[in-house]
Structure formats: C-alpha cells, structure tokens
C-alpha cells in the first residue's frame, strides 16, 4: 500500500450571497472528504456549480475553508503560519489552469516564466544553470529552442498548456492540481496532454488531482474518481467501478447524458429538465431528491450518510 499524499477531511465552504439585507448562505462545498495516494491520478468530476473548483482553490490556499482539515504528507496545511513552510508547500503542489492564454502574460516571453519559477522556488539563477528547465521541457516533449524568445501568441493552446505543465514541473512537485486542463485545447491535441499526465505518473511517480466535467477523459486517465453534485461527493471509488456500473442515481443520470462519440450508441430516452440550481443548494437532505426517480420521503428530510458497498462509497439511502 502506498501512503496517503494528501487527505481532505470534512471540508466545507459557505459563501454568503445576496445584498446586505437578504443574505443567503450557500454551501458550495459540503463536508467533502477524500485522499490521494502517491502516483495516483484522482479525478474530481461534476457539472458547473458542483463545487469542484472551490475544493481545488482551498487546497491551493486561494480560498479559506469554513470547516475541515487538509493533511498534506501528514501535516495540516490549514494552519501553516511561517512563510518558509508555505513556500515549501507551494513548491511541492503546483497548479495548472484551464485557459493557457490567460496563464501567460501576452507581452512577456514564455521562457521568462520558466526562469522566474526556478529562481523563486529553487533560488537558481538562469545564468548559473538551466538544467532543471531543460529537464522539465524534455518531460513534456519540448526543447528550450522551441520556447526561446517566443511570445504566448506564437503557440497553439495545446503547446502553451504543455509549457505551463513544464513550468509546474521545474520545482519537482509531488502533486499537480489541474483544473480543466484540456477543455480549451483542440480535440486533436487533447489526448497528448492527457497522455502526458499518465507518463508523468509512471515515470516520476507524480500524483495528479484532475478536475473536470469530462467523464470520458476522466475514465481514460484516472485511477480513482469522486463525483460531486451541489457541494457533496455523491459517489467515489475506482474509476472503473464508478463509471462502468454507477450506483448513485445522479451518477447514472450523468453517465446517460453524455453524448458518446459513436452513432451506434445514441440516446434512446428523453430527459426532463426542471428545478434550478439555487433551489437544489437549499434542499435539506439529498440535493438530488427533486430529480431522482427513486426518491423516498426520508431523502428530503434526513442528512444522508455515506455507505460503503463493493469498494465504492455512495451517498444514497438506497444502499443503506
């Protein structure tokens, strides 16, 4: 058994929305727990508004949690005070964002970012050594000549995303947090980025937290998956178990709603769409109760606990 790299326990984030006089509490992330092991690709999947990005922002320290703890290599990172420890954590946990054209300043050459990361985290000046940068670029299939004196506009989205992964690798992190890293990348280049995560995992033992709405790439790349819905993790386990035979009614519906790229596998039933986002956040029991075909009276009133079944954790009273 490999050890736990990061452990998220009971993470909760409450936002207050609305004007001064009609404040509404919106629980964007509700008691979320999961853990990522060494050399593991873990997917956090869900639709927009499910809270998946909020979780990643809390781990990165960009947002403060309302409740819960995050243990990184056994140490709670929520109450790190010293700058040195914070820097150490940021060096070990690197992020890749959705839009590579927003990651880079269009008026700066991209190589500058690589030099700057090396200087800030490793204290190595570009004039002394660029070995680390060259290694990071080789890992993503590029060379220094490819990026030298070039501006972001001279690259395609796929190439820029590769460069931003290379930048993240310079500090030799243990965990990459990738928030929708391929949704802005062209279809014909998308798999090359996804394959890169697999290679980095196999070759360097890197762990990846892959945040996406795209279950097809999630199935392809990841070991474990957690499905989020309106702030809750409704189902988690190995990606084959969760997606091949989903248990939670929401996961089932999500899987059926995907347009499979195969004309022999078209949708054969119809969907019914109602209930808006706001109302679902406000629901007391199961957030999916309004749309669930198996809904029981208890689902609307009780707090739903997690149930373990066949190695999968499901938040649904059907599996009590």
């Amino acid at each position: 058994m490999s050890s736990k790299l990061i452990e998220v326990n009971g993470l909760t984030k409450v936002f207050r929305v609305g004007s001064l006089f009609s404040r509404v509490r919106l629980t964007a992330v509700d008691n979320v727990s999961f853990d990522i092991k060494d050399a593991d690709i873990y997917t956090l999947a869900g639709e927009s508004g499910s809270g998946k990005t909020t979780v990643s922002r809390i781990i990165l320290g960009l947002l403060e949690a309302s409740e819960g703890e995050i243990l990184y290599k056994g140490k709670n990172i929520m109450n790190i005070k010293s700058e040195r420890e914070k820097k150490e954590f940021r060096k070990d946990v690197q992020a890749i964002f959705q839009n590579p054209f927003e990651t880079f300043n269009p008026l700066r050459t991209v190589e500058n970012y690589l030099y700057e990361t090396q200087k800030n985290f490793l204290g190595v000046d570009a004039s002394d050594s660029i070995d680390g940068i060259e290694q990071a670029l080789t890992a993503v299939g590029l060379t220094l000549d490819d990026v030298k004196e070039k501006y972001p506009s001279e690259f395609s989205g796929g190439q820029l995303q590769r460069i931003s992964i290379a930048r993240a690798l310079i500090t030799q992190p243990s965990l990459l947090i990738a928030d929708e890293p391929v949704s802005m990348v062209d279809a014909s280049l998308r798999m090359s980025i996804v394959n890169l995560f697999k290679e980095l995992k196999d070759r360097y033992g890197l762990s990846v937290l892959y945040i996406t709405h795209d279950l097809a790439t999630a199935y392809y790349v990841s070991d474990k998956i957690a499905i989020m819905f309106r702030g809750n993790i409704v189902e988690k386990g190995s990606v084959e178990k969760v997606l091949d035979s989903p248990k939670h009614p929401y996961t089932k519906m999500l899987k059926e709603s995907i347009a499979q790229p195969d004309p022999r596998d078209k949708w054969d039933s119809r969907v019914d769409l109602h209930l808006t986002e706001r109302e679902e956040y406000m629901l007391k029991g199961c957030k999916f109760a309004g749309r669930c075909p198996h809904v029981m009276e208890r689902c609307r009133t009780e707090e739903i606990p997690d149930f373990d079944i066949d190695g999968v954790t499901v938040k649904c009273l059907l599996y009590q």
Binding site: S156, G158, Q159, D186, A187, S188, L189, R190, M191, S192, V194, N195, L215, A216, T217, Y219, Y220, L243, D244, K255, I258, Q260, P261, D262
Partner: peptide, 21 residues
C-alpha cells in the same frame, strides 16, 4: 480525430495527431 476520442468503458491507448494546426 475519430481514433483519439475517449469513451467510457475503453481504456486503450489513444494518440493525438502530431504537431499543431
């Protein structure tokens, strides 16, 4: 394009076209 499409239930290795448009 067709060969690189990921599908649920299929973990076989997929490659992208080399280069960029």
């Amino acid at each position: 394009l067709i060969g690189s499409l990921p599908k649920i239930g299929d973990k076989s290795y997929k490659t992208s076209a080399p280069g960029a448009p």
